[in-house]
Write a protein that binds this DNA or RNA. Structure first.
Length: 158
DNA sequence: GCCAACGTTGGC
DNA sequence: GCCAACGTTGGC
């Protein structure tokens, strides 16, 4: 068993794709990311086996609900080429794709949701720059340090 | 449903 | 290259 080297947090709206959906399908292409910063993290930063905190956004109790892992190298997001898709991008071509994704595999659900308001109470330890506690909080994919990963998962047991 | 934050687009 | 307008995110 190899040690994880990197950690990430990925947001999903549970109405669109929840941790239960991921548990059901096992592995899912993380399509639909249309933000360059988030894309760059997936394309340039992620490696197979990296740990992922699965976060539910835009829901009654936003928070971390499960753990997943990166299950592929980055490759072009097919939905950018599909005119019928909500994620269609007319400026993307197969020769020059604009959007990339990775496959994400289910590991486990947390014993309980770690709510955003609890996470905010640890802003000092997480660092003011941690995207979940920073102003705006719009970035949907971002790196998590080993220390942040440990701190956040310690909250699961409380 | 509201609205602040903020990324993107496009006219100039 | 500036920046106003616009669209989206996401907490509340």
């Amino acid at each position: 068993m190899s040690a994880r080297t990197r950690y990430w947090l990925m947001k999903s709206e549970p109405d669109a794709f929840s941790i239960d959906d991921l548990q059901r399908v096992g592995t899912e292409p993380w399509n639909g990311v249309r933000n360059y910063q988030a894309r760059n993290f997936m394309r340039d930063g992620m490696k197979v086996g990296d740990g992922v905190l699965f976060y539910h956004s835009n829901t009654k109790v936003p928070g971390i609900v499960g753990i997943a892992r990166v299950a592929s190298e980055a490759y072009p997001d097919e939905t950018q080429f599909d005119p019928k898709s909500d994620y269609y991008d007319p400026k993307a071509t197969r020769e020059q794709p604009r959007w990339y994704l990775v496959d994400v595999a289910f590991e486990r659900k947390l014993a309980r949701t770690i709510p955003l308001d609890e996470i905010k109470q640890h802003a000092d330890q997480l660092g003011e720059g941690f995207p979940l506690v920073a102003r705006g909080n719009r970035l949907s994919v971002f790196p998590v340090t080993a220390a942040q990963w440990k701190l956040l998962l310690a909250l699961e047991k409380q």
